[in-house]
Design a protein around this nucleic acid. Structure first.
Lengths: 156, 156
DNA sequence: GGGCATCATCCGCTTCAGCGGATAAGGAGG
DNA sequence: CCTCCTTATCCGCTGAAGCGGATGATGCCC
């Protein structure tokens, strides 16, 4: 059998998310479709296959290791980012920085990130210093970043 | 086999990503480990199972519909956001925003984006000008930014 | 009451993600 | 030369993802 490796079992999360997404999409639980109807709706709406049984298994936590395809189908139908459906134990450290997507709602920050890509390391260091200095001037709290990478030379 | 649903086959992407990630992590292709060694390394580094055969199948495009667990293992080892590994056809509309995560593979760009958040508009403009100037100096192509999502669809 | 629809739940099946254990080819070292 | 290690590639298996088709229960209409 496959024991939980983390010691912290992370199973029930996905089922709750599915249930919540259903409830969100159909707030009136009197007219809420059952799994059969819902599956049909998903199939027609996304063009991808989806069965009532499987939806039930997901909502009750019986199956939780989805494949990309299923993940995409659900994400498309409920219109949530696919990453939101990723099981809680799946995210890597790099994903923690996906929080940063939040920061990027600011359009200008986004532009800066996009344009900084591809610059030389040396220039990036200079920019980094500038932005840090700017934070100091504007009296913002310094950003804490974990720095533990061993050999991570610039990709590309 | 699997009938194409979209008419647009999106298969080769993942294999290329895997290969690129390997090449990125081991730039010297003379000392680059084979799939067997690599699998062992992944296993020891992440604590999750991974087989050499499967790695090869992924890198050659033979298998492409990963489950969350495998996705997480690879994302953790290569230190990329799990969503980056999502196959190209999987992303929902809500994911468009996260496209930019690709640019954020570069660690320093990431830092800059993180720290730029919260700064005043006026400071951001200054930074934007600087980074644009830096691009000019380094003779990088100017970044074209599409302004398509001006009026947010409302979600998030 | 009897029909008809939909519900949640289950059982059994097919398909494929993922792996173990071959195989042959390419070095390094004796 | 032969042996040992690692490589890429393949074959065949197990287990689980995912589905089709039961089942009984509930509610609506006649």
């Amino acid at each position: 059998m496959d024991p939980e490796r983390g010691g912290q079992h992370t199973g029930c999360g996905l089922a709750a998310k599915i249930t919540r997404m259903i409830e969100t999409r159909y707030p009136d639980h009197r007219t809420r479709p059952g799994f059969a109807k819902l599956a049909t709706e998903i199939r027609e709406h996304t063009g991808k296959p989806m069965s009532a049984t499987y939806l039930w298994e997901l909502a009750t936590g019986r199956k939780r290791n989805l494949t990309q395809e299923t993940l995409g189908t659900l994400a498309a139908f409920f219109d949530v980012p696919a990453e939101y459906l990723l099981d809680d134990g799946v995210r890597s450290r790099a994903d923690a920085e996906a929080n940063l997507t939040v920061a990027l709602r600011n359009r200008k920050v986004r532009s800066i990130a996009l344009r900084a890509d591809g610059l030389s390391d040396h220039t990036l260091d200079a920019l980094l210093a500038m932005v840090d200095e700017a934070r100091r001037i504007e009296r913002l709290a310094p950003v804490e970043e974990r720095s533990d990478d061993a050999a991570g030379p610039g990709d590309r």
